[in-house]
């Protein structure tokens, strides 16, 4: 197909998408249920003071559980695709003294901030995912500065990757022994269990993102990147 024909076809498809989406947005039906009101009414018994964290880990915790499973599948696939030489590809880099000094001062700050964000998730915006992203950023910075944490503790890394999902699933299933439904927290324990799950999830999410970054194949392509687009 010639280039101009391709662009014209893509333009027609894009305009069709735009037209359909804007029609759908403008003619969206009124919601039958007032979700913010429902959340506010049930916030008392969720064990958490912040609505978003309560939705994530109590009202809709099934989504979060499956999300952690998706992360685990992604990182297992990433680890299966790694190359043996990728681990040592960057270790000789970054003998830059400025970068080293900056990293040594920045890493503790990043980790402390992530613990704060995790803690604040129970009453303010924050929580496991934001804290996990900060942990991952700390790991990426450490990696770029030449600290090779991930390959030093390979077994621990694999355990840590699965830990969040395992703990979440254990808590979810353990409710069934008491005759309650799946993913139902025991009375009065919801707040502390949610915090425990969030803390372990932070660790696992951070490790997942770090190991997807660290174990990526090296950047030198045998053919050289030819981009003729």
């Amino acid at each position: 197909m010639s280039r101009s024909l391709r662009i014209a076809a893509a333009g027609i498809v894009a305009f069709g998408t735009l037209y359909a989406l804007i029609l759908a947005v403008l003619n969206a039906p009124q919601m039958q249920v007032n979700l913010p009101q429902q959340v506010a009414l049930n916030l008392e018994q969720s064990g958490i003071d912040h609505p978003i964290t309560a939705v994530l880990l109590n009202f809709r915790s099934y989504d979060t559980l499956l999300e952690v499973a998706v992360l685990l599948v992604a990182v297992v696939t990433g680890l299966a695709l790694r190359e043996r030489d990728a681990l040592t590809a960057h270790t000789e880099q970054a003998r830059d003294p400025m970068l080293h000094a900056l990293t040594r001062r920045l890493l503790p700050l990043l980790l402390i901030t992530s613990v704060y964000i995790l803690w604040s998730g129970s009453y303010a915006p924050g929580g496991a995912f934001q804290a996990g992203a900060l942990v991952a950023a700390a790991g990426v910075i450490a990696r770029l500065a030449g600290y090779d944490i991930a390959s030093r503790a390979d077994v621990l890394l694999r355990l840590g990757l699965a830990l969040g999902f395992i703990l979440f699933l254990t808590v979810a299933v353990s409710a069934m022994f008491g005759g309650r439904p799946f993913l139902n927290y025991p009375e009065g324990w919801a707040g502390s269990l949610i915090f425990l799950i969030e803390a372990v999830l932070t660790f696992s999410i951070g490790l997942t993102l770090i190991s997807l970054f660290v174990h990526a194949p090296g950047d030198s392509s045998p053919r050289g990147g030819d981009d003729d687009d």
């Binding site: 979700l35 913010p36 939705v55 994530l56 809709r60 999300e67 992604a74």
Partner: peptide, 24 residues
Amino acid sequence: HGVDPVPQALVLTGIVVAVSATAL
């Protein structure tokens, strides 16, 4: 209905999945 925590939580879930899928 004003600020709605349910879709915000779903979007937060979606962002994390999108980041890891992009990395993969």
